[in-house]
């Protein structure tokens, strides 16, 4: 008896289009009598569906905490970007192209772009040089897109093992002019062993403290 793959599909639809689908993918295994069931549950909501593919999504649902899907497209764009940047950003032209590509991803994908970038900055997949350029670029965006996530990643980068990245994070936070970063810079200062960086962190705290 030959086996054929079976897909049992439970479609939960709100008329049209179907926002939910429950799928059970039954694949043939080595023995025809032994059927392997691989469940795949996929759920898309109205607030996340626009983020699928290379499509700008609405930023009006700022209260939602549902996880945005990081698409294969976005993942590939970020991977390609850092593969190139990790080879070295030697010339102004290379840095400009890096900033343009990163800004485009940010404006297109918002928070999801920062979620995709985070492993490179926090997980240390990016070189210190490209991580630093990323932080600088994120602090120079004249938009509120992904503002909270951008601040978060800069504050988180203050804990980086690389003093180069910590320095870039402090510089980026200084550029953001956001006093809410002060407690996190103070915490970083309490752990900082590099004397010149300690002095710079104190300068940034002083600068932000004077901001209203």
């Amino acid at each position: 008896m030959s086996t054929v793959p079976l897909l049992i599909d439970w479609d939960l639809s709100r008329s049209k289009p179907a926002p939910f689908s429950f799928e059970w993918l039954i694949l043939p295994s080595a023995k025809s009598t032994d059927i392997k069931i691989e469940p795949k549950i996929q759920q898309l909501s109205s607030s996340t569906i626009g983020a699928v593919g290379n499509t700008p999504f609405s930023l009006l649902t700022g209260t939602s905490t549902e996880q945005l899907p990081i698409t294969d497209y976005l993942t590939k764009q970020i991977t390609d970007l850092y593969n190139l940047a990790n080879d070295g950003l030697f010339e102004d032209e290379q840095i400009r192209e890096f900033w343009e590509a990163l800004s485009a991803l940010l404006l297109t994908f918002g928070d999801a772009a920062i979620e995709g970038i985070a492993p490179y900055i926090i997980g240390e997949k990016a070189s210190a040089e490209s991580a630093s350029e990323t932080l600088k670029c994120l602090s120079h965006q004249e938009t509120l897109v992904a503002y909270d996530y951008r601040i978060w990643i800069m504050e988180r980068a203050l804990q980086s093992p690389s003093s180069w990245i910590r320095d870039a994070a402090a510089l980026a936070l200084e550029s953001m002019d956001d006093r809410t970063a002060i407690p996190y810079i103070q915490e970083a200062l309490s752990k900082e062993s590099n004397e010149s960086l300690r002095q710079y962190l104190q300068t940034v705290i002083g600068y932000l403290s004077r901001k209203r």
């Binding site: 030959s2 054929v4 793959p5 079976l6 897909l7 049992i8 599909d9 439970w10 479609d11 939960l12 639809s13 709100r14 008329s15 939910f20 429950f22 909501s45 109205s46 209260t63 939602s64």
Partner: peptide, 27 residues
């Protein structure tokens, strides 16, 4: 505290999708 709620009606259809060796699906 954000209290976000989303309301709708949903339908569930259960379907068996069978793929023949040539790749043709049958539902």
């Amino acid at each position: 505290i954000n209290r976000l709620s989303k309301w709708s009606c949903v339908a569930m259809h259960r379907t068996i999708v069978q793929y023949f060796p040539d790749g043709t699906p049958s539902t």
